[in-house]
């Protein structure tokens, strides 16, 4: 079965995506993401290999141990407030990007990033068109 180090897990769902036996369950509300690893008897260690956070290990089955479960509150977008990602994922992305890119925009949700990009690229043109319309 799988042992989870909750201090390393970032809540990304890779393990659940790659599990061939649907043994890693996910539930997501607007507020939080929850992941539960069922007591798995497979010899497979795909989730362990493909965990970007190296948070998982394969250990012998232990019927008395509870099924591991973690939950992450989702972080609200700085602009629209919609909750969009677990904080450890965002911290990890922010740390991975060069400081020169000043990546504070990771705290904006992708939809707001697109809106900002659309407004930035068209701003001057929109102002001109509105002037023309009077």
């Amino acid at each position: 079965m799988i042992r989870v180090d909750p201090s390393l897990c970032i809540g990304c769902l890779s393990c659940s995506n790659v599990c061939p036996s649907q043994n890693i369950l996910r539930t997501e509300t607007v507020e939080e993401r929850r992941i539960r690893w069922k007591r798995c008897r497979e010899e497979c260690d795909l989730c362990v290999e493909l965990c970007p956070a190296r948070a998982l290990t394969l250990v012998p089955i232990d019927e008395s141990a509870p099924e591991p479960e973690v939950s992450f509150p989702l972080v609200g977008c700085r602009i629209c407030g919609r909750r969009y990602a677990p904080e450890p994922m965002l911290r990890r992305v922010e740390a991975a990007l060069p400081k020169s890119q000043s990546p504070e925009w990771v705290w904006d949700c992708p939809a707001c990033r697109r809106r900002a990009e659309a407004e930035r690229t068209t701003g001057e043109m929109v102002a001109a068109r509105r002037r023309r319309r009077g």
Partner: peptide, 9 residues
Amino acid sequence: TGCGLCSLA
């Protein structure tokens, strides 16, 4: 693996 880090990045 569908982790979604790229989308957030």
